[in-house]
């Protein structure tokens, strides 16, 4: 079985438990002074990579990757506290990268770092694009299994992935190298333990810029307008059964 050299890209997004607000200019979601955390699907990717190692698969190393402002390093430290060995941060303060830009960047990283397995979250909870993994597979011309709920790797490099589809599960098999994107039922991510948080501080975190990869990642999409969904209409109350029947008749339900 070949040694596994895993790449886990992670994204820093607005915390799952925070209700996002649209900014006054209706151009984007308000991000200042809002709690950010790791994209929950990416936590699943890390957990799965770490579990492969714990299951005594020949994992050579697990590299966490993120692109974006300096704050992404907190996210990478969390990734290392959860069990990644080292981290790579492509610092980009101004521009928000689109899935294609990220996929191109990841392609370079995969080649540079000689990765043979990339585990990505199926989507980030801020853009919900669900594209990066697929685009990366296309660029690399590797097999892909999206929305994985179970991953198994055997002695002859066969990767069997169970994925949830409408009304059941689908099982795919392919040989390494491979792209996997994770879905919620894949595993339950661990907490970052104190000793591991301490250790993570000493793990290597390499910083690079887009220039280092000589990439053109110009954005191709333009956000026209961002709007909040219409507020939910509150329910009404009726005094008694007669009131309810009258109301239902009024609404044409009876």
């Amino acid at each position: 079985m070949s040694k596994l050299r895993i790449l886990v890209p992670v994204k820093r997004v607005i915390d799952y438990a925070v209700k996002p607000r649209v900014n006054k200019a209706q151009t984007a979601v308000e991000k200042n002074n809002v709690k950010h955390s790791m994209n929950p699907f990416d936590e699943l990717s890390i957990e799965e990579a770490v579990r492969l190692r714990e299951a005594k698969k020949p994992v050579e190393d697990i590299l966490a990757f993120s692109a974006g402002p300096a704050k992404c390093q907190d996210t990478l430290r969390t990734a290392m506290a959860m069990g990644c060995d080292r981290a790579l941060h492509v610092v980009e303060e101004k521009q928000e990268l689109e899935p294609l830009g990220v996929a191109k960047l990841l392609q370079k990283v995969v080649e540079d770092e000689k990765r043979n397995l990339v585990i990505l979250g199926k989507q980030s909870i801020d853009d919900d694009a669900n594209q990066t993994g697929q685009m990366l597979a296309g660029l690399l011309n590797w097999p892909q299994a999206t929305q994985a709920s179970k991953v198994e790797i055997d002695e002859s490099d066969n990767v069997t992935v169970t994925r949830e589809v409408d009304g059941g599960v689908e099982t795919l098999r392919a040989k390494l190298p491979m792209i996997i994107t994770t879905d919620l039922r894949l595993n339950e991510p661990r907490y970052a333990s104190l000793p591991n948080i301490m250790k993570a501080k000493k793990k290597p975190l390499e910083k690079k810029s887009l220039k280092d990869y000589g990439l053109d990642v110009e954005n191709r999409l333009k956000t026209v307008k961002v709007q909040e969904p219409p507020p939910r209409q509150g329910g009404g109350k009726v005094e008694d059964v007669d009131g309810m029947i009258a109301k239902l008749k009024e609404l044409g339900a009876l």
């Binding site: 915390d15 799952y16 955390s37 929950p40 907490y191 333990s193 104190l194 948080i197 301490m198």
Partner: peptide
């Protein structure tokens, strides 16, 4: 604080919430 209590072996193990969901 965490480094101190871990270093002095006052606490045996621990976790720190990384996001709001974990806080909850």
């Amino acid at each position: 604080f965490l480094e101190h209590v871990m270093g002095e072996e006052i606490v045996a193990d621990g976790v720190v919430a990384q996001d709001e969901t974990q806080v909850q």
